[in-house]
């Protein structure tokens, strides 16, 4: 009786697993077939080459990539010293800064976008690269959390005092002690920013910039196959980024983090 019960239990869980996996894989499969099949039912990679031959799309992809790299670099430049400072010099201020870092979660991206549009000086509204600042804010709840967790996992203050006592120079302290020890946090922050920038639509569409998501939305009206192909590719891109970062990370700690969209 007990055995039968546990077997039934297992089977039900297995069924749940199968249904769940199917729910996530079917749209990917259907989209791939939809994108690559022509009217006669033959498969070709034509829609993909068509998408990449479209100058507007390649230009928007390049812009989005540049924005994401800049966002990663600037976020790390601002946050790593600040979080290190918080752990070494003023740990009593950590609660307050954490609270500030969570504020962007309370303001939906579309509302932040409207605020940006109505408060920023015109020189910041005349270049798409100002989106970098907006995206730093959007990603901050997660990037701050990732880095703060990484600095909490090591005893930052002891490492700092030990290395200075042993006569380490600042450069050694920063590049050979602190940064290697918090690399999991750095990788996690990098992934979260890449995923966010690759999909961000609210700011870009309000400010009328041709980033990849906004161009993709318009392209969908014209060439459905190409747009669907690009959609699947962008999902694959995020997946690839996560795997590459996990590989680089080499530590056992997974960097998968809770993201909020």
């Amino acid at each position: 009786m007990e055995k039968l019960k546990s077997f039934l239990n297992k089977s039900l869980l297995f069924l749940a697993l199968i249904i769940g996996v199917l729910f996530f894989l079917l749209p990917i499969y259907a989209s791939t077939v939809f994108a690559l099949q022509d009217v006669e039912g033959n498969y070709s990679l034509d829609p993909i080459s068509r998408a990449f031959a479209n100058e507007e799309i390649t230009r928007s992809l390049l812009l989005t990539l540049r924005i994401s790299v800049l966002t990663v670099v600037l976020t790390l430049l601002v946050l790593i010293p600040t979080v290190a400072w918080l752990h070494i010099v003023v740990p009593q201020a950590r609660k307050f800064v954490e609270f500030l870092s969570l504020l962007p979660l309370v303001i939906p991206p579309i509302v932040q976008g409207v605020g940006f549009l109505y408060s920023m000086p015109s020189f910041l509204k005349s270049t798409p690269y100002a989106l970098v600042f907006a995206y730093m804010i959007l990603a901050m709840p997660f990037t701050y959390r990732a880095l703060d967790a990484a600095f909490s996992a090591i005893d930052t203050k002891t490492l700092y005092e030990a290395s200075l006592t042993l006569g380490a120079k600042w450069r050694t302290l920063v590049f050979r002690i602190l940064i290697p020890n918090v690399r999991t946090g750095i990788f996690a922050a990098t992934f979260l920013i890449l995923a966010l920038v690759l999909g961000e639509f609210a700011y870009a569409s309000l400010l009328l910039w041709d980033t990849f998501p906004t161009v993709l939305a318009v392209a969908g009206m014209g060439d459905a196959s190409a747009a669907v192909a690009l959609s699947v590719l962008s999902l694959l891109g995020v997946w690839l980024a996560l795997n590459v970062i996990n590989l680089l990370n080499k530590s056992n700690r997974s960097i998968v983090n809770v993201g909020v969209r």
Binding site: F24, L26, P27, I28, A30, S31, F34, A35, L192, A195, L196, G199, E200, F201, P213, T214, L216, A217, G220, A224, A227, V228, L230, S231, V232, S234, L235, V238, W239, L242, V256, N257, V258, G259, R261
Partner: peptide, 18 residues
């Protein structure tokens, strides 16, 4: 991690195709 962080335009198109 990938699915929770994607969404938006690509997701909409994938469902239109499905």
């Amino acid at each position: 991690g990938v699915f929770a962080n994607t969404g938006g335009v690509p997701l909409a198109f994938m469902f239109i195709a499905s």
